[in-house]
Simulated assay, not measured.
Amino acid sequence: MLAAVAAAVWAVVGNWAEVSDAMSRLSWWQVALSLTVSIVFVWLTMLAWRVILNDAGDPVPGASARRIFFVSQVAKYLPGGVWNFVAAAEMGTDFNISRRRSVTVLLMSMLVSVLTGLAVASIALLFGPANLIEKYWWVLLVIPALLVVLYPPVLNTVVHRGLTFLKRDGIEKPFSGRAIATAAFWSTGSWILAGGQVWLILTGLGNEATVETYLLTAGGYALAWVVGFLVFFIPAGVGVREVVLAASLAGLVPAGDVVVVVLLSRILFTVADLLLGLGASFSIRRDAKGAL
Rank of each mutant, 00 (worst) to 15 (best):
A3Y: 12
A7L: 15
V9E: 02
V12E: 11
A17P: 05
V19T: 00
S20E: 15
A22P: 02
M23T: 11
S24I: 03
R25G: 01
L26D: 09
V31Q: 08
V31C: 05
W49E: 00
L53Y: 08
A56W: 04
G57W: 05
D58Y: 03
P59D: 11
P59S: 08
S64F: 12
V71G: 09
V74H: 05
G81F: 04
F85E: 06
E90R: 14
M91R: 08
T93D: 10
F95W: 01
S98R: 15
R99Q: 13
S102P: 03
L107I: 14
M108A: 13
S109L: 01
M110N: 15
M110R: 07
T116C: 13
L118M: 11
A121H: 07
L125P: 07
L125D: 07
A130H: 11
L132T: 12
I133E: 06
W137S: 14
W138S: 11
W138T: 05
V139H: 01
V139N: 04
L141K: 00
V142T: 11
P144G: 05
A145F: 13
A145E: 02
L147I: 10
Y151A: 11
P152A: 02
P152V: 10
P152F: 12
N156K: 12
F165K: 14
L166D: 10
D169F: 04
D169C: 04
G170Y: 10
G170C: 04
I171M: 10
I171K: 02
K173T: 11
G177N: 07
A179E: 01
A181I: 12
F185L: 13
F185R: 08
G189N: 03
I192V: 15
A194H: 09
V198Q: 00
L202S: 14
L202N: 03
T203G: 04
E208Q: 11
T210P: 03
T210Y: 00
V211T: 13
E212I: 06
L216I: 15
A222N: 02
L223K: 05
A224Y: 00
A224E: 00
V226Y: 02
G228H: 10
V231I: 15
I234F: 14
G237S: 07
V238C: 02
V240E: 05
V240S: 04
R241L: 02
R241C: 03
V243R: 08
V243L: 12
V243M: 08
V244A: 01
A246V: 05
S248Q: 08
A250S: 14
G251Q: 09
V253A: 14
V253C: 06
L264Q: 06
I267L: 14
L268S: 01
F269V: 09
D273W: 01
L274P: 06
L278H: 08
I284F: 06
R285D: 02
D287M: 11
A288E: 15
